[in-house]
Amino acid sequence: MSDRTLLLVEDDPQDELLTLRALKSAGVCNHIDVVRDGQQALDYLFCQGEFSSRSGAVLPAVVLLDIGLPKISGLDVLARLREHPSTRHVPVVILTSSDEPIDLVRSYRNGANSFVRKPVQFAEFARTVARLGVYWMATNEPCRGA
């Protein structure tokens, strides 16, 4: 099990519960932080605002980022992460209900590491999220000291 954190950015409380359930049953992450809008996500990752006490903390091993977020959209959050040197290399997986080609293109253009559609059927959803957890928390080697 990884000691590192997974950051889930999700505004839908039920999707949050289901994602957490799937991640826990996959048993790959010890520590999951959840933020619920785009501004919170930026505050968390840049250690500012309500998260200023996180200052100096390591970045999450992966950010699971929804697109349709309140305040700042997931795509804008992603663009700002890629602009800033400290967050340029943090792995970001877009996890969304959208299957619009335009969202896919924009996600990669803004620097997403992966684009995953949330399946509506829970069994498939659970499998997908579990695979994501295993890959990004256990298999993938993040960029250190960037």
Partner: peptide, 15 residues
């Protein structure tokens, strides 16, 4: 496409 799918996933997921 976005907003109807989430509650649907919840119904399916919680059952």
């Amino acid at each position: 496409s976005h907003d109807l799918r989430a509650p649907l996933r919840a119904m399916n997921g919680f059952s």
